[in-house]
């Protein structure tokens, strides 16, 4: 699945030189693109500006739309795998835009703050800027592992964005 700068969403088979479907997504300046299954229908998840939109890949029609609380563009999106019980979008800004992350349910309203630099809540300490992240299963739960510029790792539950456990200190 690809999307170009004109907002044309195209579906491809790995060994076929021509797209199998082309849909105008009606957006420009797409930052991130991912795909998943919602209610047994394949959808594309794309970010444009501070919004995240869903496009039904069977019809090419907009399926849903939700917003981040970012003041600048959401540059990347990732989604939970289709076979998980909790289906979330992870929308990410990069270092130049504070390195923040929103976790959004695949319903319109945001459900969690996610691992958000600047909202650490510890009085008197500067919250870390998150530099990289990966998804991993810990004790049967999917979590986002993030590393900050303070050399700590934090784990956030994919389903609600809550931090699980204290920050982990990477070995020196």
């Amino acid at each position: 699945m690809t999307i170009d700068e004109r907002g044309l969403l195209q579906l491809w088979l790995p060994h076929q030189p021509e797209p199998v479907a082309s849909y105008p997504a009606g957006v420009g300046s797409v930052g991130g693109l991912a795909c998943t299954v919602v209610e047994q229908r394949p959808v594309a998840v794309l970010s444009s500006g501070g919004r995240v939109g869903l496009v039904d890949l069977l019809t090419g029609l907009p399926a849903d739309d939700t917003t981040t609380d970012f003041t600048q563009d959401a540059l990347h999106v990732a989604v939970s795998p289709p076979n998980t019980s909790t289906r979330s979008i992870i929308a990410v800004q990069d270092l130049s835009t504070e390195g923040r992350v929103n976790i959004l349910d695949l319903n319109p309203a945001p459900t969690g703050d996610g691992p958000t630099a600047g909202s650490d809540g510890r009085s008197g300490s500067k919250a870390p800027v998150y530099l990289d992240a990966d998804i991993v299963t810990v004790a049967g739960r999917q979590v986002i592992a993030v590393i900050g510029d303070d050399a700590t790792l934090r784990l956030h539950d994919v389903s609600d964005g809550r931090q699980s456990g204290p920050p982990l200190t990477a070995p020196p």
Binding site: I135, I147, D149
Partner: peptide, 22 residues
């Protein structure tokens, strides 16, 4: 110490345990 440049994180499962590699 803050390490603002060139930090990467990848995760994998090693012997049924989750491991973070930075």
């Amino acid at each position: 110490m803050r390490t603002p440049y060139g930090v990467r994180l990848r995760c994998l499962t090693l012997g049924n345990r989750p491991v973070g590699i930075s």
